[in-house]
Simulated assay, not measured.
Amino acid sequence: MSERVAGLPEGQYADLDNGHRIHYLDQGQGPVIVFLHGSGSGASGHSNFKYNYPWFVEQGYRVIVPDLIGYGYSDKPDDVEYPLDFFVECVHQTLQTIGVERYSLVGNSLGGAIAIKYTLDYPSLVEKLILMAPGGLEQQADYFTMPGMQVMKEVFTSGPMAPERLEDFIRRGLVYDDSVVDAHLVSERWGIFQQQNSQVITTMTVPELTDRLGEIACPTLAFWGVNEKMMPETGIMKLAKGIPDIRLTLVSQCGHWVMVEHRELFNRQTLDFLQNG
């Protein structure tokens, strides 16, 4: 059981058929939106989407915000490997346990790759798909050429970890305007990071899904920060040309976290897409 982290809300837990336990927030009533967060040290659903999911509750939606396996308050097994299909399996079993039948998926980074694979595996369950610089569009080695990955390597291998090192990576690797990085965000992520083990990072494998994007039939909205440092920009045209029914928004002065750096734009455009397609 994960220890509570100051300022990081605790919701409910789903005991899965595969034996793992997943933490999730479940708020509001109405059409269901599932938010799938990215990877990285100390990541959690709330920390990724705290500027978004409460607003959608106010707009009349039911939001489900799980912590992915290995993250947040969810189980962090150190005796399994973490291929993409394992994340998809845990998300699917969580939603089955909750009892929701149709939903729109929102995913950024690793969460975007999970959302793409989930939509391919369970097309009848996904109404709409919203992606923010998703993974799964390149060979894994290509990501490690990106400047944000170089920052991550520099920060995390140059000495003992401390909150200041984690903050340095967030400021230099994940965002364009680091004024969005406050002490509360760093504290949330540091609290979870201290409870994580390295297994999820060292064994995570995300295959390239580009050749299968044409199978995605549901309407899709994608965002991409022009100043992205983590994901190769070749992914932009792979999405644009690969998914048959897609609207793609390029956001200037924006890094990897469009839903944080440009939260109002992200919320408005996503709401319009959910309402009008």
Score class of each variant (00 low, 15 high):
Ser44Arg: 09
Gly40Tyr: 01
Asp67Val: 05
Gly214Cys: 05
Leu120Ile: 09
Val65Gln: 12
Arg263Pro: 01
Lys128Pro: 06
Ser124Glu: 14
Tyr71Glu: 14
Leu105Asn: 04
Tyr53Ala: 07
Pro207Ser: 14
Arg102Trp: 00
Met231Ile: 15
Gly70Met: 08
Leu185Asp: 08
Lys76Met: 13
Gly28Ala: 05
Cys254His: 04
Tyr176Glu: 15
Phe87Gln: 03
Phe156Gln: 13
Asp79Tyr: 02
Gly19Ala: 03
Glu58Ser: 09
Ala141Met: 06
Ser252Tyr: 07
Met204Phe: 03
Gln275Trp: 00
Trp257Arg: 07
Asn276Ser: 07
Arg263Trp: 07
Gly45Glu: 05
Asn197Thr: 11
Ser41Asp: 12
Arg247Tyr: 03
Tyr103Gln: 11
Phe56Arg: 05
Phe35Glu: 15
Val63Gly: 00
Pro9Val: 01
Val100Cys: 03
Thr205Tyr: 01
Leu25Asp: 12
Leu185Cys: 02
Ile192Gly: 11
Gly235Gln: 11
Pro123Leu: 03
Ser198Ile: 13
Leu174Ser: 12
Asp121Tyr: 00
Leu239His: 13
Ala217Lys: 14
Val126Glu: 14
Arg172Ile: 07
Gly148Phe: 08
Phe87Cys: 02
Ser124Thr: 13
Asp245His: 10
Pro134His: 13
His262Gly: 08
Ser47Asp: 07
Pro9Trp: 02
Leu16Asn: 11
Ser44Pro: 05
Ser252Phe: 03
Glu188Cys: 05
Leu265Trp: 03
Thr119Phe: 05
Leu84Ile: 08
Asn18Leu: 02
Glu233Phe: 00
Gln275Val: 08
Leu25Cys: 10
Gln139Cys: 00
Val151Ala: 11
Leu131Cys: 09
Tyr122Gly: 05
Asn227Ala: 12
Glu215Gln: 14
Tyr143Arg: 10
Tyr103Met: 12
Leu125Gln: 13
Asn108Tyr: 00
Glu164Ser: 10
Val65Pro: 15
Tyr118Arg: 02
Asp272Asn: 12
Tyr118Gly: 03
Tyr122Ala: 07
Leu105Pro: 09
Gly148Met: 11
Thr97Ala: 06
Met149Thr: 10
Val34Arg: 00
Ser158Gly: 11
Tyr53Ile: 03
Gln96Leu: 12
Asp85Gln: 14
Leu131Glu: 09
Leu8Val: 14
Gln93Leu: 09
Leu209Tyr: 01
Lys76Ala: 14
Gly99His: 12
Ser252Thr: 11
Glu154Gln: 10
Ile33Gly: 00
Asp26Tyr: 02
Asp15Gly: 06
Pro31Ile: 11
Asn108Glu: 11
Ala183Trp: 01
Tyr51Ala: 06
Leu265Gln: 13
Gln139Ser: 09
Ser41Arg: 15
Trp55Asp: 15
Leu25Asn: 11
Ser124Lys: 10
Glu138Ser: 03
Gln12Tyr: 10
Ile64Ala: 02
Phe144His: 14
Ile116Lys: 12
Gly72Val: 06
Asp75Gly: 04
Gln275Phe: 00
Glu228Met: 14
Ser44Tyr: 05
Lys241Asp: 15
Gly255Ile: 09
Val258Leu: 09
Arg189Glu: 02
Glu188Lys: 01
